[in-house]
C-alpha cells in the first residue's frame, strides 16, 4: 500500500513538473501560429531572445519587444526564447525558411553566427542585433542596439564625484566576477581607486547574492573602519547592504551618514530612492524595441539608418536616477518589475 502511495506521489509530482514545462514552452509555441495572419501588409519579424526567466532585466526586455512588435504597430512577429546558442541558431534558420523580413537577435553567445547570418543576407532577410553584440563581419547586420556597460559605470561614478564629499571611503560590492555587468560597473570605480580620488575600504564579490552582500557589510561595520559610500553593483546587493546598516544603527540616504548606490532600477529600488533611503540607481537600459521599430520603419520607407558608430552600433542611453530629482513618473516609466 505504501509503495502504491509513494508511486502515486512521485507520479503526481512528475506530472506537475511536466505541466509547468508546457507552460514555459508556451511563448515558443507562438511561432507555430499559421502564417496566414501575415496578410494585409504586415512586416514579418522574427525575434530571438533569451528567456524572460533569466533576470528582471530580461523580463523587461522581453516585455518591451512583445509590446512594440504587435499587429497594431504593423508587425507579424514571432518570438523564440532560449539561453542555448545552438537552439537560437536553429530557430534563426527556421525563421529564415519561414520567410521573415527582419531578424532581431540577442544572442546567447557571441560566436558561431556567421553562417546563419550569411544565409539570412542571401535570403534577403535584414538583421538587427540588440542588447548583445555578435563577433561577425559588420556587413552581415543593419545595426546593433547595445548597452555600454563601461559607460554605465562611468555615469554612476561621475554622479558620485559630483556629490563633492570631503572624502570618499567606499565599500564596493561586486557582482559575479567576469560578468559583463560586473566588469563595466567595477572598471569606472577601480579607476578612481587607482587615481587616489577615492579610498577603497573593501572590494568584495557577493556574486549578485543579496544575503552575502549583507554579510560583507556586517564584516566591514564590525571592523570599525569608517565608510561613507556603498557602491553595490545591483539593487539586491544594495538592499542587503542597507539591511546591515539598519541593524547596526547607521543612517543612510539623502543627507545621511552613508550614500547608497545600486544598479538595475527595479521599481522597489526606485521607491527607496523616492523615499530618500538610497541616493542613486543606475540602469543598463533594457528598452531597445522602439529604437529598432523606428529603424525598420525608416528602411521600409526607403530611407537609410543614421546615427551609427563605426561598429554599426547605437549605444542605448544609460539612465541614472538621483534620489533628489526622481519622480513617481520615472518609476512608472523606467522601473523594472512590480
Amino acid at each position: 500500500m505504501r509503495k502504491v502511495i509513494a508511486l502515486l506521489l512521485a507520479l503526481v509530482l512528475v506530472f506537475a513538473l511536466a505541466a509547468c514545462g508546457q507552460e514555459a514552452a508556451k511563448p515558443e509555441a507562438k511561432e507555430d501560429t499559421p502564417a496566414g495572419s501575415a496578410e494585409g501588409g504586415l512586416i514579418k519579424v522574427g525575434v530571438i531572445n533569451n528567456p524572460p526567466s533569466e533576470s528582471g532585466y530580461r523580463e523587461a526586455n522581453v516585455n518591451d519587444f512583445t509590446s512594440v512588435f504587435t499587429e497594431e504597430n504593423g508587425y507579424d512577429a514571432k518570438f523564440f526564447y532560449s539561453i542555448k546558442n545552438d537552439e537560437q541558431l536553429a530557430a534563426a534558420r527556421q525563421f529564415i525558411t519561414d520567410g521573415v523580413d527582419y531578424l532581431l537577435i540577442s544572442a546567447a553567445e557571441t560566436t558561431g553566427w556567421d553562417a546563419v547570418l550569411k544565409d539570412a543576407k542571401d535570403a534577403g532577410v535584414r538583421v538587427f542585433l540588440f542588447d548583445r553584440m555578435i563577433d561577425c563581419d559588420k556587413d552581415l547586420f543593419e545595426a546593433a542596439v547595445v548597452s555600454n556597460m563601461a559607460l554605465e559605470g562611468e555615469t554612476a561614478v561621475n554622479w558620485l564625484l559630483d556629490q563633492k564629499l570631503p572624502e570618499y571611503n567606499v565599500v564596493h560590492i561586486q557582482g559575479a566576477m567576469g560578468s559583463d555587468a560586473q566588469i563595466g560597473r567595477t572598471g569606472a570605480l577601480d579607476a578612481q581607486f587607482e587615481a587616489g580620488t577615492m579610498h577603497k575600504v573593501v572590494q568584495q564579490t557577493a556574486t549578485w547574492d543579496e544575503g552575502e552582500a549583507k554579510k560583507i557589510v556586517e564584516a566591514v561595520i564590525n571592523s570599525g573602519e569608517p565608510f561613507n559610500v556603498i557602491y553595490a553593483e545591483n539593487d539586491g546587493m544594495a538592499r542587503g547592504a542597507v539591511a546591515a546598516l539598519d541593524e547596526a544603527g547607521i543612517t543612510h540616504g539623502v543627507d545621511k551618514d552613508v550614500i547608497v548606490m545600486g544598479f538595475d532600477c527595479n521599481k522597489w529600488a526606485l521607491r527607496e530612492l523616492l523615499a530618500g533611503n538610497w541616493n542613486y540607481d543606475g540602469q543598463c537600459s533594457p528598452f531597445q524595441a522602439s529604437v529598432i521599430d523606428q529603424m525598420i520603419k525608416t528602411l521600409e520607407a526607403g530611407g537609410t539608418i543614421e546615427g551609427l558608430n563605426d561598429a554599426k552600433q547605437i549605444i542605448s542611453e544609460e539612465k541614472g536616477f538621483d534620489a533628489r530629482t526622481i519622480t513617481q513618473e520615472d518609476i512608472d516609466t523606467y522601473g523594472l518589475g512590480e
Partner: peptide, 14 residues
C-alpha cells in the same frame, strides 16, 4: 529555480 520563477514571475518581488 525555474519552478521558483514560475511561482512569482521574473522580477524580485518584495
Amino acid at each position: 529555480r525555474s519552478i521558483a520563477y514560475w511561482i512569482n514571475g521574473g522580477a524580485t518581488p518584495t
